[in-house]
């Protein structure tokens, strides 16, 4: 059964819908990219998938024993976080929070997990450094390591390369793809359609017209080509 099944969902605020009748599935090991115009509801959809918001209509079914704590989330950063006095280790460890249950302190296994994920993201040497002194790309890796502490199944990434320069962006995409190859399901919101077409297996276009299909289908569809033209010039 699919990891995530979205059935006829409508999203919105205060009773007003921004997107309606969304239906799609996400299989294990999938790489889904959610694209669309600004304000089309991409982030709202992501928040709904994470149970941070309730859908206005429709249902979301999780399969494969996916528990809420098993979804890794890479949110967009806030100003507060950029300036936060915490070490990299402290930030990454906080990803293990859902594993803590009723315990007060992190166990040795959880600390070990944090160390391994930092190694995976190539930031272990910065474990004691202050989070706010890292570059944008390094901070994203820290947050990715944190997300990996929360899950080994699904990662939801909200605009992971926003504000990063081209080389760092490319590195980030490669990193995400390697995680996907290891078996982690990726759901990513992005306005970078070109990259989406390069890496994703499935595309969900949210907006006035909704599209769900493989990337090949998208790039040959009318909607896809139109959107590509519009967004085309972006690096």
């Amino acid at each position: 059964m699919a990891l995530l099944t979205v059935n006829d969902v409508s999203l919105g605020y205060d009773g007003r819908a921004i997107a309606e009748h969304l239906s799609f599935t996400v299989e294990k090991g999938d790489y889904l990219c959610i694209v669309g115009e600004n304000g089309s509801g991409k982030t709202t959809l992501m928040k709904t998938l994470l149970n941070l918001k309730k859908p206005l209509a429709g249902e979301i079914i999780t399969g494969d024993d996916l528990k809420p704590g098993e979804i890794g989330y890479l949110p967009q950063q806030t100003e507060v976080q950029r300036d936060f006095p915490a070490s990299v280790m402290e930030v990454v460890l906080s990803g293990c929070l859902s594993r803590m249950g009723n315990r007060v302190f992190y166990s040795r296994e959880e600390k070990q997990l944090a160390v391994e994920n930092m190694k995976r993201m190539g930031i272990l040497d910065r474990a004691d450094q202050c989070y706010r002194e890292l570059s944008g790309g390094q901070q994203q890796r820290v947050l990715l390591a944190r997300a990996l502490c929360a899950t080994q199944k699904v990662l939801l990434l909200d605009e992971p390369v926003a504000g990063l320069d081209p080389k760092v962006t490319a590195d980030m995409y490669r990193l995400i793809q390697s995680l996907n190859k290891e078996g982690i399901t990726i759901i990513m919101v992005s306005h970078d359609v070109a990259a989406a077409l390069q890496y994703a297996k499935h595309i969900l276009h949210v907006g006035n017209r909704v599209f769900f299909g493989t990337r090949e289908e998208y790039s040959s569809s009318k909607l896809g080509r139109l959107f590509l033209e519009q967004e085309g010039g972006e690096a």
Binding site: L52, P68, P75, T78, F84, L93, L97, V104, A150, L156
Partner: peptide, 23 residues
């Protein structure tokens, strides 16, 4: 404060993430 130290940290650093992981 001691009992909930790590949770207070999580909620202060990133409330959205904490909520997404079930807190």
């Amino acid at each position: 404060f001691v009992l909930f130290y790590h949770r207070i940290f999580a909620v202060t650093f990133d409330e959205n993430f904490a909520r997404a992981t079930g807190m």
